[in-house]
Write a protein that binds this DNA or RNA. Structure first.
Lengths: 194, 194
DNA sequence: GGGTGATACGGACCAAAGGTCCGCATCGTA
DNA sequence: TACGATGCGGACCTTTGGTCCGTATCACCC
């Protein structure tokens, strides 16, 4: 596979689109960010956006991936408590707290991502990755039993629309949300035999 | 308020639309059920559908309400374990199991409902009702502390898209899903001081 | 620097879906 | 049976994701 060599203007445009989309999402809800507006904000034609990212979901994924690259790196190869070496009882709360923090920082992006057009969030590679990571850590405590289901329920507790509801309707501050989540994780982890 | 008296054809059409929509949802995913197709299947014009239900969300809500009326009745005024008199340790698992069962029976309807077009599921009256009901029961165990958050997490565990994923991708049978959910509920309820 | 093929650009265009509108039909009542 | 109120239906509008292709730009070689 001899890497087909990207043209300079193509990579420049790709970056511009990501930047524009990032700004738009930071300023308004997911519904206001249409592909048209992204293209316009990037000073680029619509076709360029779709060529670079295939479809809306592709753009959202690329954006989310770029924003959370450090987090993913910390989880896959970093030190404790996020890194793969950490003991589950430290790592699992850390994972969920980090994920919650990431969502809180990029709420409308994550909302857009989880609405997902047609496909449910459960189809995405990103969800699969988090689920696997979490499940494996959990399995070291449970012996594997129901770790998968438990991982799903924990991840469901940090879904972007729920977090949004907690922030905007129940008006909980970030730290409050994170501490309640932490308490919940503690509760769930408690009874697991080491 | 002297009840404006509904015309006979209007109520007939309303029913026809509900029936048609119900059939469509039972046969295909939420994306396939457009307002147009509902109108066509009901043998009725589009305007009639929108006049009767205001918008798509209104139709979905009306449909869900009709399908789960018995369940709501059982919860608000029925006998144990669902009824309001039952002790929380019986009632809470029963509530979640019943809700899970309802979703399993009407998966694509609930998926459509939770996608919600623009508004998140957390805006809906139906969610608020379940959340309040569950929170109140939980509060009788926790003394109120974090009952609201816990109720959210429990409800998140039965979200339609998650349930769909468990059924179709992980291929768990209904009973398996319900029993894992039950186990999870037990775990979460366990540490609560009575 | 100039020529040439490959690659990317951009915006007109398309299709689908939710929602609106209003001339016409049907209902309920006297 | 007549007549006003209510409801009907489908053409129409708007928005949005996504496609297409004639044109411009890039990268490479001479």
């Amino acid at each position: 596979m001899p890497e087909p060599r990207r043209r300079a203007d193509a990579v420049r445009n790709r970056e511009a689109v990501l930047d524009a989309a990032e700004t738009l999402f930071s300023r308004s809800g997911p519904a206001e960010v249409s592909m048209n507006s992204v293209a316009a904000a990037a000073g680029v034609g619509k076709g360029t956006v779709f060529r670079a990212f295939t479809d809306r979901t592709g753009l959202l994924q690329a954006l989310a991936e770029r924003r959370t690259a450090p987090l993913r790196a910390a989880v896959t190869g970093g030190p404790a408590p996020l890194g793969p070496g950490s003991p589950p009882r430290e790592r699992i709360p850390a994972l969920l707290d980090a994920l919650a923090a990431a969502k809180l920082e990029n709420l409308s992006l994550y909302r857009a991502l989880e609405e997902a057009g047609a496909a449910s969030p459960y189809q995405s590679a990103s969800y699969a990755w988090w689920h696997t990571t979490l499940r494996d850590s959990l399995a070291r405590l449970t012996g594997g039993q129901d770790a998968g289901f438990l991982a799903h329920t924990l991840l469901a507790a940090v879904r972007a629309d729920l977090v949004t509801h907690l922030r905007t309707v129940e008006e909980l501050p970030e730290e409050e949300i994170r501490s309640r989540l932490a308490a919940h994780v503690r509760t769930v982890l408690e009874p697991l035999s080491s």
